[in-house]
Design a protein around this nucleic acid. Structure first.
Lengths: 135, 135
DNA sequence: TTATCTGCAAACATTTTGCAGCGAG
DNA sequence: CTCGCTGCAAAATGTTTGCAGATAA
């Protein structure tokens, strides 16, 4: 199965290239429509799905059940520190934690280990905004 | 708001008490109907929601988008090592990882920090079953 | 040419909500 | 008696799929 380079797929990749934070599929679709594209929501999902398979994007399964996508330059395995409010993201690497996860799993005889580590918080900017709104 | 002790809420708690692994809301609902209960699916969701708020149950947001619930005796903060196949669960504590998460967040000025750490793997039993099926 | 991709709409799955009546305190 | 809880059905949400037509290679 050869993946074809279509207008829509290129457009999705370009849009993601201009974003630094996680976006939901719906958000991406809305942004593209705003830009005049007539891309369908299904196509966005299908595109993101194949990009995820190809490891071109990072997928984050938010606690509210929606999936978030983000272009990911790094090949290295890493995790994210995400702002709960604006979704600003910081990429973090943590070898000790990786090792810990694997040794815990090994200790219990688990195979094909993978893990999910996400840190959520409120970034400085949003925290300041919240304080301002308080007054 | 006082939480009332009703037949249904008691039944959900009892069912969970007899389970050691994570169950989805739908699964819980189905099990209760099998046992002759006429509880509604909405009630199961509402009950689990309030139990989660009261920290009586652990909630796990699976990668496939459905939420899994499990009674949790420990008051302490901890994480899970879950079998991808049968959902057998091991509870693990990792103070160093907690510290790491908080210091990373603090380093970037993030407030109200929380984190999600789940380790997925295939437990010894399921790995053996898979090898048997291979032949 | 032709296999793959696209847009639309309908299908799905999970979870939430509105409402009239029930029942615990 | 009250106010929260219940069951049902309908709605909302997020995602997937079927299909006929468009299109990259």
């Amino acid at each position: 199965m050869v993946i074809r380079q279509t207008k829509q797929r290129t457009a999705v990749a370009e849009l993601l290239a201009n974003e630094t934070d996680f976006r939901s599929a719906q958000q991406i679709h809305a942004l593209m429509r705003e830009d005049g594209s007539s891309i369908g929501l299904a196509t966005v999902y299908r595109t993101l799905q194949s990009m995820a398979e190809a490891k071109t994007v990072d997928v984050l399964h938010g606690a509210d059940g929606e999936s978030l996508y983000r272009l990911c330059a790094e090949d290295e395995h890493h995790h994210h520190l995400v702002c709960r409010v604006c979704r600003a993201t910081v990429e973090v690497v943590a070898p000790p934690v990786e090792d810990w996860a694997h040794s815990i799993a090994a200790e219990h005889g688990y195979a094909q280990v993978s893990h999910t580590i996400e840190i959520f918080g409120v970034c400085p900017a949003c925290a300041a905004a919240a304080r301002a709104a308080e007054a």
